[in-house]
Design a protein around this nucleic acid. Structure first.
Lengths: 133, 133
DNA sequence: ATAACGTACAACCAAATGGTTACACGTTAT
DNA sequence: ATAACGTGTAACCATTTGGTTGTACGTTAT
């Protein structure tokens, strides 16, 4: 329905770039909670209307928000779909970490696989599971 | 143990900024899977060593990776803690979305709360649940 | 001892970013 | 009809970004 494609590199760049500014994250937070006009948003920040308008533009280009015309106003609402996609991407990295830890465990479990040179320097005492879950 | 503080705005800015470049995400991906030296990383990309070194610097400033000296080499490994923090932040936004939908549902469930002026323009036919769960 | 390697850092550059003011244009209110 | 409002866009500016080359310095290999 919505998109369900894999995010391209440029799309992902845009998403994280859009999230990399406090003002824009705040706009996202406000519009994920409730639809708001660009003016209403602009009133919240200590900068010109044009500046806020540009921030909204960046969020829109990343498809993190969607605009809808209502008379002379443009109502902004967040697009949770894209937020979820970004979150899923980070979860993917964490999954890779899990896989790595598993490989390490498997290595440590083996008796003596192949005497390669220093395959993992200083694994430390005990199981290497400091992971945070 | 690790940090368990709330991320400041500048820290969050740094994290998402670091994630906003394909090259840096790729470095993160590689180092989350296995520890690698800066040279090993640099060999993977079509740019100067110095360029890659700077990308590593950005990731390090965001604490998304950690460097460790080993002779003349600097071994880079990802810091899943920070990846998790970024993911948690996005999940927070999605939670706000849930809360918003719940408020809307509650509003639609009420018989006639207060005749305010157009509190949610065009709720459309049927329940507004297009959400992707 | 000397050469090669891995890293760091400085200086430089073009392009992008985040902000400004000014203006045009459609919509709403008086 | 006219004024005020909401939005979009253009021109401009300082700073940051992402890349370059060159150099210095400690570490490893010959």
């Amino acid at each position: 329905m919505v998109t369900r494609y894999e995010l391209s590199d440029v799309e992902t760049d845009r998403i994280f770039h859009a999230l990399a500014t406090t003002t824009r994250r705040d706009i996202l937070r406000r519009t994920v909670a409730a639809e708001q006009s660009v003016s209403e948003l602009a009133a919240e920040y200590d900068m010109s209307f044009a500046a806020v308008q540009k921030h909204v533009e960046v969020l829109e280009a990343a498809q993190l928000i969607v605009k809808r015309a209502a008379g002379r106003e443009r109502l902004v609402r967040a697009n949770p779909e894209m937020i979820a996609r970004a979150r899923a991407l980070l979860a993917q990295y964490e999954e890779l970490w899990r896989a790595r830890v598993d490989r390490l465990d498997a290595f440590l479990a083996e008796p003596e696989p192949e005497p390669e040179q220093d395959p993992e320097p200083d694994p430390g005492p005990g199981p290497t599971h400091h992971l945070t879950p």
